[in-house]
Nucleic acid binder design. Sequence first.
DNA 1: TAGATTGTTAATCGATTAACAATC
DNA 2: TAGATTGTTAATCGATTAACAATC
Lengths: 214, 214
Amino acid sequence: MSSEKKISQSVIRRLPRYYRYLKDLLDKDTERVSSRELSEMMHITASQVRQDFNCFGGFGQQGYGYSVKALYDEIEEILGVTDRFKLIIIGAGNIGTALSKHDNLKKSGFDIIAIFDHKESIFGKKINGIEIRDINKLEEYLTENKVDIAVLAVPYNQANELAKIVTELGIKAIWNFSPGDLHVPQDVVIENVHLVDSLMVLGYNLNENKKNVD
Amino acid sequence: MSSEKKISQSVIRRLPRYYRYLKDLLDKDTERVSSRELSEMMHITASQVRQDFNCFGGFGQQGYGYSVKALYDEIEEILGVTDRFKLIIIGAGNIGTALSKHDNLKKSGFDIIAIFDHKESIFGKKINGIEIRDINKLEEYLTENKVDIAVLAVPYNQANELAKIVTELGIKAIWNFSPGDLHVPQDVVIENVHLVDSLMVLGYNLNENKKNVD
DNA sequence: TAGATTGTTAATCGATTAACAATC
DNA sequence: TAGATTGTTAATCGATTAACAATC
């Protein structure tokens, strides 16, 4: 059963953004911030800022505002990045390779510990110090290593097959870069990065904006 | 002034998804589909399907449903991909390179026509047939080539500077892969792909799901 | 204390779902 | 015609914003 009150995904999706702005304030040695100041920086309402934070508890102090450091730490804790997450990448193609080399992930609490592919000729090679392994040895690897998240960076027609494989091996979270939706058991969480979908929305909005200039 | 009734972003963001499912039906030579069938495939309500399509006009026929081909073509038209979009990539790093090699974009109506970077040693080289050019020659390039979208794949600390440069040169749409938000004039549309934000949401949901199993 | 700003309740707004008459 | 399914209006639900008492 659910232990606490459920927080809506709208709120959750704003947390990383708060976290980024608080990091910037921290880097500028700002000690306190009010909901109004934060809301002006982020172009949202101060009401929303306070509502959002109050989903998790009273982090502020009346008449003073919020301690930047304390709030930053709280959000870090809520997001779970303090504990770090272990990821494996499935698919050593363009996207898989780029993500393996992308150091921002490590900086933010996400460690890529292995890359899997089916192409024999690249087994044993390393990308950014991370070994490429045989996808057929995934089961073996998982018995010896704790993995939190599988990153699916494979072609469309292989995505669901590989989603099935990793979830049957006990993976409970998939970061999906394949176009198309995955069919997985209910207890598996998915986050899609649908690049083409995103571009299409951008294209639509561009055309729409153009029309409105006339 | 706005010419027609404004469609909400919630609806727009669902269009690429409809488009994908209709493509699959088309590939399976399915001629017609009802809102109920589509809703079951996509795990949404039939009401929502009909409401969404009716934002743009009556595409269906009572008692029959929707013609897959006609609906597919309509959505393609709405999204603007029939006309294709011309993109340039700013930053030939991991992400810029991966996107340049990513053939899905071309398949979906988005042509990458140039890559810009400031690293002299790679000028003139090609990635997937696309030439890497001097970022200082961007202005010159834009006078001779129509560009719809600039893809920002540069480090955090350079993102806003480059956003300023491209928007001052007349670019009206930015696909942003840098962490952090861009500050651009009101008539410029932005679509963010915040990879770390996305992972953080996934991590939160994973932990939340784990808790609820107990 | 007086001023500022939170935490929280109430009001509003927008998006989703339900219902059903229109019609193929 | 009878059955099916849309287009569309009305009801519900959830998220955002406003307001203000509590309190630092």
